[in-house]
Design a protein around this nucleic acid. Sequence first.
DNA 1: TTGTTAATGCAACAGTGTTGCATGTGTTTT
DNA 2: AAAACACATGCAACACTGTTGCATTAACAA
Lengths: 138, 138
Amino acid sequence: MEADKLLRKHNLRVTGFRKEVLALFNQRSAAVDSRTIEKHLQPADRVTVYRTLRTFEDSGIIHRIPDPTGAVKFALCNDGCNDLAHHHSHAHFHCNTCAMTICLDGHGQMPIDLPSGYTANDIQTIVCGVCAACNRAT
Amino acid sequence: MEADKLLRKHNLRVTGFRKEVLALFNQRSAAVDSRTIEKHLQPADRVTVYRTLRTFEDSGIIHRIPDPTGAVKFALCNDGCNDLAHHHSHAHFHCNTCAMTICLDGHGQMPIDLPSGYTANDIQTIVCGVCAACNRAT
DNA sequence: TTGTTAATGCAACAGTGTTGCATGTGTTTT
DNA sequence: AAAACACATGCAACACTGTTGCATTAACAA
Ligand SMILES: [Mn+2]
Ligand SMILES: [Mn+2]
Ligand SMILES: [Zn+2]
Ligand SMILES: [Zn+2]
């Protein structure tokens, strides 16, 4: 979606920086971390990057993807997410070689037995392995 | 397993600090983070805590459990893990209320379709919700 | 018991993310 | 179009997590 429309739809002010961040998300197929935004949108203040990411996440524009190394990345939400709730049921893939992370759309979750008294809100699955590019390079 | 035997089995020197860390893991059913070890085993040097955790992880004594908030916790490996490889196929539960994390043993993983050329080594599943204690407290 | 090797403690540092506050900009109202 | 308002940004300072180098101490083998 057009950056202007997307921001207005989520009741956010349309600023140059936010449009640039959205453009960066759109031109990348992989998930993006704050450092990448900071470097790519020079000169970008680290604080502004973090606040923008938090605003986008709180508004339902992007979702947070922690990878198994402890790093945190973000990707655009497909649709239907807003300030009230995110609803994703997709897994993520993390490449152990190049650290790239992508969303894996289109498959459900296996039911999981929980101990008595426990309730589940959300199930997050991270598949770790080697991506196509890194497999070819081997 | 006895701390001494466990350490020797993994070719690690038996030190007081390592035995105390293992005792802490044994007396807790939930996963443990570095901060907890540091506070509980006063006076414990932060660097020593991190190096001990890394050594234990590299040796196959504990495994790393990143939770969706970005925090990292650790839990004892059941068995069969060593310095060459960890083999776990269990999910983890993270309580959104009290931030407690536990291992969920005894169930497999659903097969996941990957894009062409991608290969998977490991699948990590994190179930987020509310634990029994927090549900009762509501 | 002696010597070798590894573990620990301390200091300093890097990276990530946060807060307070002043200033600038987008949006709405008049 | 101008003014007023609310919010976004930039800067400085800080907290937290984790790492590295180096000197000292402790484990263990000979
Ligand atoms: Mn995703
Ligand atoms: Mn586990
Ligand atoms: Zn890769
Ligand atoms: Zn809880």
